[in-house]
Amino acid sequence: MSTAMSLPITIHAQSLRHALSTHSDQTKKQKQQMTRLFHTLLASYSTPFVQRVSPSHPPPPAVYVFAYGSLINPSSLQRTIGSTSALPSHQSHSSIKTIPAVVSGFKRSWEYKCSRRQYTAVSVTRDESAATNGVLVQVQWAQLRALDARESGYTRELITMDKLRLYEKTDELNNGHYAAMDSNNLPSNAIVFMYTLDSSNNHTASPSVPIPQSYVDCIVAGALQTHGYAFAREFIQTTAGWAAHWVNDRNAVAPVRRYVPDCSAGERDLSPDLQDAVDELLKAVVPNAFMHRVDV
């Protein structure tokens, strides 16, 4: 036992022994009670704290964030929270594990004005007729604070389990089968948050605040690499507002290029093959909007 731990034990022990020896008029029962107190005190100092916690106390809740935009991409997520040990996913990319899921009652649109780099990003607003696909990632409370700072223009909202469904298997997901299973596959005490936008703050993309392909690449490539073609296609299909002003800024330099990868966090520019795969998917799902995309 270290000196720092033994010092308070010595002080308490001396006090109790003194009380036992000087109060000779005490009854035998009182002395026995004080002796038991002494041994209990000694044991409390020598037993690790985790062993002293009552087994009846419930474990702390597992905290998840439902990501539906750039946070779908594990490398983009990692630039904010670093590595995390979530539940095992069916597939993993980088050190962050994500779980494909759907939240009902919310519509995803190109409606958020990102003032940091003047571009239009995706957001979700309430719409009981809609559903939004994305990924669940387990986080620690400290990581949640970092995400709050990144998503400062949004509101972190608690999502009830009746709104949440998990995809069944990645192999079925990639084959276009969207059978979902109950969210009770998460820990029973799980808490799920999502960053939402109040409908009064809706924004429409414009030439000065466009939808940038660099940001689209981050999301769609991340979806493709982590959970496959069908999941990425579902992202595009369930996102409204593609017809707004959309620019291809892949080959531009900052500040014209709006979303710049953070190499220190593992983000990279897309390879030519991956760029082609993203473009082919966009062209197939939103052909009219893609045709009007402007190169800058």
Rank of each mutant, 00 (worst) to 15 (best):
I236F: 03
L164K: 00
S70P: 08
P187N: 14
M34Y: 03
G69W: 00
I219S: 00
S56D: 15
H292F: 12
K28W: 13
Q26F: 11
T35K: 02
R52I: 03
V294W: 02
F49A: 13
A230D: 10
E128Y: 07
A121Q: 05
N288T: 15
Y195Q: 09
Q30P: 07
S83G: 10
E234M: 14
S104K: 09
V53Q: 05
V122Q: 00
H177P: 02
V65M: 04
T27N: 07
I99G: 05
L197D: 04
S75N: 11
S75R: 02
E172K: 13
P59S: 12
D273T: 12
C218Q: 01
S95P: 07
A223R: 00
R145L: 15
D25S: 10
C114D: 14
Q32G: 08
G176P: 06
D127F: 02
V260Q: 08
R117L: 08
S200K: 10
E234K: 10
D198W: 07
N288W: 09
M181F: 12
N175C: 11
A223Y: 01
M34L: 13
V103G: 02
F38V: 02
V50C: 09
N184E: 13
K97L: 12
P8S: 06
G241I: 04
P261W: 01
F38P: 01
A67D: 02
L186R: 01
N248S: 03
Q51C: 10
V53L: 13
I11F: 13
T239N: 06
T155S: 12
P74N: 01
M291S: 14
S188T: 14
D25V: 07
V65C: 09
S188R: 10
H227K: 00
P272N: 07
I211S: 01
D127Q: 03
P100A: 06
A130D: 10
D279P: 04
C263G: 03
S95E: 12
S56T: 15
L41M: 14
K107M: 13
T196E: 04
Q91R: 14
T84H: 01
V102R: 07
H90G: 14
T80I: 15
V63R: 01
N248H: 04
V209Y: 01
G82C: 05
K283L: 14
L7A: 13
Q138I: 12
L173P: 05
V296M: 12
N133F: 08
L42P: 00
P100R: 02
P88G: 04
L87Y: 03
Y68D: 05
L77A: 09
A101V: 06
S92R: 11
N73Y: 00
T3C: 10
P61L: 11
V253Q: 12
Q26L: 15
S15P: 05
F49G: 09
T47E: 05
E168V: 08
Q33K: 04
A230S: 15
V65L: 10
D162G: 06
S92A: 08
